[in-house]
Design a protein around this nucleic acid. Sequence first.
DNA 1: CTGGTCATGTAACCCGTTACATGATTTC
DNA 2: GAAATCATGTAACGGGTTACATGACCAG
Lengths: 187, 187
Amino acid sequence: MALRHAVLAALLDGEYSGYELAKTFDAGVANFWHALPQQLYLELSKLESDGLIAGRQVVQETRPNKRLFTVTEAGISELSRFAFAAARPSFIRDDLMVKVRSVDAVDPAGVIRQLDERARIATTKIDIFEGLLRRQRGDLEEELFLREGDRIGPYLTCLRGLRFEQENLDWCTRTAAVLRGRTAAHR
Amino acid sequence: MALRHAVLAALLDGEYSGYELAKTFDAGVANFWHALPQQLYLELSKLESDGLIAGRQVVQETRPNKRLFTVTEAGISELSRFAFAAARPSFIRDDLMVKVRSVDAVDPAGVIRQLDERARIATTKIDIFEGLLRRQRGDLEEELFLREGDRIGPYLTCLRGLRFEQENLDWCTRTAAVLRGRTAAHR
DNA sequence: CTGGTCATGTAACCCGTTACATGATTTC
DNA sequence: GAAATCATGTAACGGGTTACATGACCAG
């Protein structure tokens, strides 16, 4: 059970509905945690009945009603407990890496196509992260912000996400180039 | 079902037993795929009964017997099919990132400890990857090896793993320093 | 004689994914 | 008129993790 804590951490930013959370997860959180909307709705229900978050109904006229959630004090305690306990080693699962590892035994064309695609996605994510970072630090220089800002957790994780995607872009571009060079030479 | 392909890709390197594969997974493959030994034994059985790999019994006197597996032609076909199909987006799941994101609301001491720990792990992995890369390219320069080497798939994925761990080390070190600076200033 | 390595599995459980379900409003 | 957005769920399935199980050899 670990999605709980990802959701709690995300709700530290403020009040969110399940729907809004799902979008947040796609944007900022996605680079170190991923969840589908259905999972979020379920997890929010559980967290609420465990008293770790509190929800309030917001009636809307022109749109469907929604429920907004905030972290309770019990939720903060749970997060503290979690943050103190040893983290399990992180893991990545990436189909594309498996494919690149197999590239000597299979036709590289499909792999190259997917490397290009991945590079494009990385470019988009880089823009998103840079936007998020700018918005969070406002007028402050990064160093000053990190020394004196109120809320630096999300900034620090965005920094990691940005670096990850920059490396991703770099690697995908170079790997695609290497594979293209070889197929051109072979024929 | 995707562990299948990670196992197939790993078996392209040669003949391995379940036990040896488990170690391989810990070392080189772990940075983009992870599996416990039990899962590997099960998956190997399935792959064998599906005809994608072939096993042969090796009787040992001083140690327990083992079964070594190789990829069959049907296995290569399956890998080709997989490599050509669209990859699902990769994902990371990292407890430590969730903790860093929560660091404004909880005691940073535990998080700092885990960042240090993670930095040490990253250092170890960097050494492992550098060793693997050196061994694979032998006497050749990297560029030449990538242009003309026989088997570059594992080299390319190691490059990605190395970069990832270097970034990891860097980020963990810097993040820990930022958090230390703030707790020192507050008191 | 304790702990690590070699070596291979089974069974139960839980979490995550896929598929299904609904329905009004806004934008192109 | 079609497609995207807002908004929230249930149910089935399958894969991944945890726990359990065994046993011989070798190094400190």
